[in-house]
């Protein structure tokens, strides 16, 4: 099965490449700064959030740098919410193609996840700039960060496959998901410290996959510690399960897409 996946990916890699570069071209058409916005936009929005939360709401995380804490969570959550949102409508939006040429349909959610992924990698530049400027020490443990990123990607892709399938049959999901993402954002300790919550809430929060990925990354970046075994396992299981379910659902329903879009 995995060999099959790789062969298909190879076969359609050029199409994937073209779809992603189209997204970039269309996104930055007629903008003076162009792709630079991929860098500038997250920097500016994150600055706003940093100012608001540390100065207006006086959030802080005792003993560690709040700015690094906030940004490391925000960068990862933004990837998830933006990619899954774009991917959700990707199958519906490309219906004119699906209806006329045979293309594997999974290519649309996948291309969105990769497209936002490139933006995500760009936002690592300002993140690392902040890490260095605030004097946070960078250790060899940073080499383990790709594990969290890969888990985040698999989780996001899984959610994207589920959402794009549902969106074909039930357009209401656009609105429902907007609410869900908002809820998830507050359920993930991005701008607050998990320890400020009542103790009964903490186990619930830990069920949130996003918490696991962000926690894994923060362990390394901020606390300069090897993440615990539970953390490794939680990241792996949550991402693989969600991706497997997404693939299963998408595969099962994809032949019906054409009647509903």
């Amino acid at each position: 099965m995995i060999a099959n996946v790789i062969r298909n990916l190879k076969k359609y890699s050029f199409l994937l490449n073209q779809l992603i570069s189209r997204d970039f071209k269309v996104k930055y058409k007629r903008s003076v700064l162009g792709v630079l916005w991929s860098l500038l936009y997250p920097v500016l929005t994150m600055s706003v959030m940093a100012v608001v939360f540390s100065n207006v709401f006086k959030f802080s995380t005792p003993g560690i740098n709040y700015l690094v804490y906030l940004l490391s969570g925000l960068v990862m959550f933004n990837y998830f919410s933006e990619a899954s949102n774009l991917a959700m409508s990707s199958v519906v939006a490309n219906f004119s193609l699906i209806n006329k040429v045979y293309i594997p349909k999974w290519i649309f959610p996948l291309s969105k996840c990769l497209f936002v992924g490139i933006n995500f990698l760009l936002t690592l530049i300002p993140l690392y700039a902040v890490i260095i400027l605030t004097g946070t020490e960078i250790t060899w443990l940073h080499l383990l960060l790709p594990y969290a990123v890969i888990c985040l990607f698999m989780f996001t892709l899984g959610v994207s496959l589920i959402l794009s399938t549902i969106a074909v049959f039930l357009r209401d999901i656009y609105y429902i998901y907007g609410v869900i993402v908002m809820f998830m954002m507050y359920l993930t300790p991005i701008m607050y410290d998990i320890n400020i919550l009542d103790s009964w809430m903490i186990p619930i929060l830990k069920l949130n996959p996003m918490y696991n990925y962000i926690n894994f990354a923060r362990m390394i970046i901020i606390y300069r510690q090897m993440p615990s075994i539970e953390s490794w396992v939680a990241c792996f299981i949550s991402s693989v399960l969600v991706l497997a379910f997404g693939v299963f659902l998408f595969k099962k329903k994809q032949d019906k897409f054409i009647y509903y879009v």
Binding site: Y12, F14, L15, N17, Q18, L19, R22, V101, I103
Partner: peptide
Amino acid sequence: LNGAVMGYNR
């Protein structure tokens, strides 16, 4: 783009 859609490579 269209060539890629039809399954050709670069």
